[in-house]
Amino acid sequence: MSAAPSLPVRALAALGRPVVAAARATLELWGVLIGTLAGIIRSYGKGGRRPRGAVLAQMYAIGNRSLVFVAVTLGFIGMVMMYQACLQFSRAIGDLSQVGLQFLRLVVSDFGPTLTAMMLATRVGAGIAAEIGSMKVTEQLDALRMSGVLPIDYLLVPRFLASIVMTVALTILGAAIMYGAGGLTAWLSFGVNPRTFFDPAMVQPRHLALGLIKAVTYGAAIPIVSGFCGLRARGSSEGVGWATTAAVVGSSFAVIALDFALSVGALWLFGGDL
C-alpha cells in the first residue's frame, strides 16, 4: 500500500548500487584494455598511422622521471630486507651461507619486479592519469576526436608500449641495485663473504622467466588502469585530482593482485623446485 519501499528492498538497493557501479567500471576497464590492443593493431598494422617518435618520447619521459626514484628506493629496501633476512636466518638456522641464494631467488622472481612496479605505479600511473585526466576535463580529447583521432590510439597506445619496455628495463636495473645493496649489507654488517653471495651461476632460468613475465604484466597493467582512471575524469581540478588518486591506488593494487596470481601459478607449476 505504502509508496516507500520496504526495508529489505532498500537494503538490497543500497548493496546493489556499488555492485552495479563496480561491474560497470570493470567492463569499462576491459574496454580500455581491448581498445588499446585494437589500437596497437590499428596503428602498427598495414596502413596504420602511428604518431612519429611518440613511443620513444614516452620511454624517455618514463625513464627520465623514474630512474633516480627507482634506484634510490630499491637500493634502500634491498639493504633493509637483507638486514632483516640475516637477522632471521642467524636466529633460525645459525648459518648465513644460504642467505645469498634465497635472496637472489626472491629478488629475481619477485621483489625486483614487484617493488619496481609498485614505485612505477606511483610515478608513471599518477603521471598518465594526471595528463589524460586534465586533457579530458579541458575538452582536448573531444578536440582530438573532432580531428578524426581516437584518444586511445593517440595517447594510450604509445604510453602502453613505452611502459612495458621501460618497466622491464627499470626492473633489471632495480633488481641489480637491490641485490647489490643487499650483498653489501650482508658483507659489511654480517660478514657474509661477497664471493659466496654474488654467484651468477645461482640464477635459474625459471626465476628469470617468472621475473620477466611479472615485469611485462605490470608494465601493461599500470598504463591501462591509469589511462582508464584518466579517461573517467569529470569536472575540473577535483576531477583530475580524483583520477590521479584512483590511478595510484588502482595500479598499485593491480600490481599486488597480479603478483599474487602469478606467484601462486608459478608455485603450482614448479612446486618445491621453484
Partner: peptide
Amino acid sequence: SEEKLAPVRARIGMLFQNYALYD
C-alpha cells in the same frame, strides 16, 4: 562508431568552450 564518424567529422569544425588547445 568513432571510426565511421571520422570522415563525417572531417567536414565539421568545432571551437570548444575551454579552448581545448593541445598543451
